[in-house]
Design a protein around this nucleic acid. Sequence first.
DNA 1: CCGTATCCTTAGGGATACTG
DNA 2: CAGTATCCCTAAGGATACGG
Lengths: 126, 126
Amino acid sequence: MIKTKKEKNNERSAVYNLGSRTFDCPIELTSTAINGKWKLLIIYRLSLQHKLRFSQLKKEVKGVSEKMLIQHLKEMEKDGLVDRIVYPVVPPKVEYGLTEAGRSFIPVLDMMRNWGLSFIAVEATT
Amino acid sequence: MIKTKKEKNNERSAVYNLGSRTFDCPIELTSTAINGKWKLLIIYRLSLQHKLRFSQLKKEVKGVSEKMLIQHLKEMEKDGLVDRIVYPVVPPKVEYGLTEAGRSFIPVLDMMRNWGLSFIAVEATT
DNA sequence: CCGTATCCTTAGGGATACTG
DNA sequence: CAGTATCCCTAAGGATACGG
């Protein structure tokens, strides 16, 4: 009763959609969604502060170039994980935030972060 | 009382070690650990069956080449996530399994998988 | 059976400069 | 401020063939 899709006797497996892409395997979907050197860090920053301007993100995601930042943001927008809000003012003001789907990833990211935390270096007591 | 490492007044941040690499940010560690087209799928397969031979992995991780499979396995072995057991028999027999650290990733992978599952395609009722 | 060894291609990403 | 537009370059990954 949990499976929501075609489980006829011929048992064709389900399909998962992210933006315009289609996946057979949910792990591959997730993997693709966060594929990109800075995406996890972007999501992390957006999870800490509900909305962030382009320039703020650039500062907080240390080391990212404008090119990669905008590129990743666009992909995540296409994938429905990130919202882009344009304020028609001058000078330009644009804010980025997580969508509902994006926010639903926060617990996953938290687990990834916690898993990383368990690799903390033990300090030699010199 | 939760932080386990140097929080003197000068507040130098903690450091995280994966294999021989060092990270300042736990998310970057996790991201690096699973970085590679097939790593998550390899972990997934090894989480379903405690031990798998090279040839079995090659079959179950559909599409992976021998080159990439062995390369990823070696990296994960270096990172302490995967165990490699060699049986001195002929023909050769080698089994791979998750280490303790590797198994500790299974709940994370489960969440990633579940998050992917939520993107299931809704079928048009034609 | 379990890998190595090459060769090759592409896409990801860095650096820099410019624009509405 | 918030991006574009180029150029460049490396490393990730595929294909194929061979070896203990």
